[in-house]
Design a protein around this nucleic acid. Sequence first.
RNA 1: GCGGGCGUAGCCGAAUUGGUACAGGCGCACGGCUUAGGACCGUGUGGCGCAAGCCAUAAGGGUUCGAGUCCCUUCGCCCGCACCA
Length: 820
Amino acid sequence: MARTIAPAYDPQLIEPKWRAAWKQAGLFRVVEDPAKPKFYNLVMFPYPSGPLHMGHFRNYVIGDALARYKLMRGFNVLNPFGWDAFGLPAENAAIKSGIPPRVSIEGNIAISKHELEIMGVLYAWDREVTTCNDDYYRWTQWLFLKFYEMGLAYKRTAAVNWCPKDNTVLANEQIVNGVCWRCGTKPTKKELDQWFFRITAYAQRLLDDLRKLDRWPERVRVMQANWIGRSEGAELDFAVEGQDTALRVFTTRPDTIFGVTFMVIAPEHPLVATLATPDQRKDVDAYIERTRAATEIERLSTEHEKTGVFTGAYAINPYTQERIPVWVADYVLATYGTGAIMGVPGHDARDFAFATTYRIPNREVISATGEAQATPLTAAFESYDGRLVNSGPYNGLSCKDGFERIAADAERRGIGKRTITYRLRDWLISRQRYWGVPIPMIYCPDDGIVPVPVTQLPVLLPAEVKFRSDGQNPLVHTDAFVNTTCPRCGTPARRETDTMDTFVDSSWYYLRYTSPHDGTAPFDKAKADFWMPIDQYIGGIEHAILHLLYSRFFMKVLFDAGMVSVDEPFGALFSQGMIQRKGAVMAKSKGNGVAPDDMVARYGADTARVYELFIGPPELDAEWNDRGVDGVARFLNRAWRLVVGEEEAPASGEGQLTGADLRRKLHETIDKVTRDIDAFRFNTAVSALMELTNLMQDYIQGGGARDEAWDAVCRDLARLLAPFAPHLAEELWERLGGAPLCALASWPVVDQSELRRSTVTVVVQVDGRLRDRIEIPAGAGEADALALARRSANVERVLEGRPVTRTIFVADRLINLVTR
RNA sequence: GCGGGCGUAGCCGAAUUGGUACAGGCGCACGGCUUAGGACCGUGUGGCGCAAGCCAUAAGGGUUCGAGUCCCUUCGCCCGCACCA
């Protein structure tokens, strides 16, 4: 036989060809087809910030592999992509460089699209959504108006972070190390009129429905539950001595009511003004002034020492009639509960710390033993396991019973009630920024706040504005935008100049994908109903709370509005780990990124893709290893040589594998790869394919023939490779005479009969210790297997004639002879 | 502090869910090919031991015929929330 030189595996030669073929075939161009099972596959859309690196690509590769696999499994796969294109970075770049945000965003989108393309990552580009385009944001505005109509969008005054030098509001993220990120000034609090979404109205449903999300990572569900932060407790009224007013507190421990030795109200509490006695007023005012200067971050820090000031006022404990001093302290938050607490230093660590500082006594009212101690407590006993002491008629009750009885008595006496409080706050969506969706509201001197009629949408964001060096929203100074007329009375009026938080844009984009060109509604209900919920959502853990919670909230609101038929958007969620290199997360700013263009030029897209999948369990962070990429390149090269090569095998003859061995390994691999992809174990799927090619190599080296049966194995190898190394798979598929496209071929099916073995290796243990391995006929019964095992010389020697008292038999696997 | 998770070769990591610990890859060693190569191909590779064998999944204990896997204690690391009454 003539020795022929197999063409070398050259990704540069084959990859562009197949990308063109996929484009022509329109792999993910889909319509609603009830005849096929649907699969809505979605990767979180990115902010187009410029060139991507291989760290970004991990989830795109995972998503692409899954989409391709589902396609081969016969699903009708919706696999769209888009751009979260509004937001601060583009606006800041514009202030700095003068390049309009839209221009830089479009440039960045073009770069990212090119990178996705050369990596062989495919999407339904005919459904592309870009949030800064008016054919999208008009519907964001439409939805805002819907929320407004439903009473879920409202405006109120709220304290925000304010930079006195830049004369602007700062988002929490814009406070770096306690100071303004731009000028280094310490921000203060300022009361401003802001738009909110009433997400708190959905707190309980958002909490309850976490139970439905059994295909979400546990940690994400826990984080959301903690964020919502449900607390059961009671509100109780304390009459203020000498005043016709009551101080209402929220507590989760009404059972400790007899342990109250002081009370605290937040500095922002409305009663502060009237509560302070004349001789204490000066101190109180000074304290409030001081805390106002403190940032939220400082205030919320546990390191922050507790401070406070006595108001001079006393409240009356409604259960003991004791006089209780009322303090003002900033460890109590005005925005949680009632903004006032009862201080129980004996049973709350924070109250204990405060009481220690100001020499306020503590009183034990819960005792683990049921007996009160003779001496004061030296630390807060916060346990719920104990009995009430020093608590008058409630003595001896368990905490739970004490809670119930004391709360019930308060309700009967009309001085309180059981309540449930959430940590979740309403969602502040106002941004004093240009590059976002204009809030479609108008301020009329006569009619007040008037929504823009939906027929007048979109409220267009002006393309030309003058950016200001002081960071102020340029929309405020754009007269052509601001000046309008009242839709109700026609008199001159002003537009709202705030824009929406970009998280509003991303809370519903997945619905727009189902009917991206609809000119009459945000989305077509029938189409949304067909595709929703998303079958697999893939994205970074950094969105565990905000984006995912907001989207869940949106979906529930739209469900209540009758616009969708499911009330959870994401059926399954996967959060991939980050890629690190040189000891840090891969990032542009760290200079440790690997560019996809470089990877494609050096190794080809397939090697880059397979390496990203092979690098480790996809949910864990992984270290990028340049040498590891070489290993994957070797693997794909081997696959190529096995299929395309025609070299004569070196006649080793030893350890020759049979065709049955080859086919068994193939079907074991089909089985494993299929199960691994379904379980998101791409790393082990790739290693299974490596094992297969290693065995194929052994087969050929042992003198195995490249006959028709071999070719059949090769065709299945190509199909198994297709989700991971799609270009190579196509090339192999074509050379093997496969039908038009491997990407459209059906996924290989396991032939159970090929998995069968005539003999199996069974482990023989004596007292649980491995003593021998024996080859026995597959499916042998206990008696036969045992007889064969006892023939082992090794086993006999170890037994030394000791009687076997018991035997454990696991068919085709293990025999354990027990002598004790 | 509260909550979630993790700890297996020199490194990244497998382990059919209680049944042969370390698959696959990196690295390393040796060999082949080569003018040469850090390229490519092949073979080997947990430790101790001549061997039988013994030891080994953070440490210690327990349950079990059998534990990386289940339970308890301790140590270490990562992530989230963090004065939420």
